[in-house]
């Protein structure tokens, strides 16, 4: 009985997800639309965010660079990549949690795979990330820092980050549709993780006994598999393994939850 229910939940989730991915044009059109709606009447458009991020990076560099006496050609690229990446991760998680709530009008009007609404949020955040990435070549050029071939490893790294974000967003969107104050919790946790993850501070500063705090934080590993290659270093084996294990377990959990409550989501909106 229980086993049958579990199997049905997965089947339900997968049929929605695969149908959603098959309609990828809906995802890209709607995701792009979200960006256009937000920035249509401004000349600089989504680059306003990029300006904001650049300011954050500069400020953090001035404060923490001096505080920790960091070397500019090491610390500035480290900080820039970290901040841009974290901005992507945190806004994808925050917006992702609200994806069903924001799209409730559409969900109640037309039959469409629910996964489309989650992916639409990921897509619009990816477009914003593409804007922000422009900062990186400027930083590298400014420091005359060369990119090595290792940097190519950031591409599979980024893919793993996005696949991990997908399950987190899917799971949160189900929970947030039912419990509306859950997004506050998500907001708090994301804020805490920002401090726990080496973004503003370098992981080399972490004394050995605090290392466990670093190692159990999945976001440390996710950030590392993208940031390290761009800085010309190889991510550790642990970084890869941890990210992949979280990816698999997370997807199993998220699809089960999604399938289990699939037919209830429309009623919750």
């Amino acid at each position: 009985m229980v086993r049958l229910q579990i199997r049905e939940s997965f089947a339900e989730a997968w049929s929605d997800i695969s149908l959603g991915l098959k309609n990828h044009h809906v995802i890209t059109v709607l995701g792009m639309q979200d960006i256009l709606t937000r920035y249509r009447r401004s000349k600089v458009g989504a680059f306003w965010l990029t300006i904001g991020i650049a300011t954050t990076i500069a400020t953090l560099y001035i404060v923490f660079g001096t505080l920790f006496k960091q070397n500019i050609s090491e610390f500035l690229p480290y900080l820039a990549i970290g901040v841009i990446l974290w901005n992507f991760i945190s806004s994808a998680i925050l917006d992702g949690g609200n994806s069903f709530i924001v799209s409730s009008d559409t969900i109640l009007q037309v039959k469409m795979p629910l996964f489309v609404h989650v992916m639409r949020v990921l897509w619009s955040n990816t477009i914003i990330l593409a804007h922000n990435v422009v900062i990186l070549p400027l930083v590298f050029l400014f420091l005359l820092k060369p990119l090595s071939f290792v940097a190519l490893l950031a591409i599979p790294g980024m893919l793993i980050v996005m696949l991990n974000l997908s399950w987190i967003m899917l799971m949160l969107s189900v929970i947030c549709a039912r419990y509306r104050d859950f997004s506050m919790i998500v907001q708090n946790v994301t804020q805490v993780l920002y401090f726990f993850t080496p973004i503003m501070w370098s992981e080399t500063l972490m004394p050995e006994r605090a290392g466990i705090l670093l190692r159990i934080n999945p976001f440390y590993h996710l950030v590392s598999i993208v940031r390290a290659p761009l800085l010309g270093k190889l991510p550790s084996m642990l970084n890869w393994e941890y990210s992949l294990v979280v990816l698999v377990l997370g997807w199993i959990l998220a699809t089960y939850l999604f399938g289990r409550f699939y037919s209830k989501i429309a009623y919750w909106l």
Partner: peptide
């Protein structure tokens, strides 16, 4: 449904049609 007031008529045609499941 799906009409964005800031978008042009042509963009809205595309949006609305996409939402209705037209390829």
């Amino acid at each position: 449904l799906g009409i964005d007031p800031e978008a042009t008529g042509r963009e809205n045609v595309k949006l609305r049609a996409t939402m209705m499941g037209i390829s």
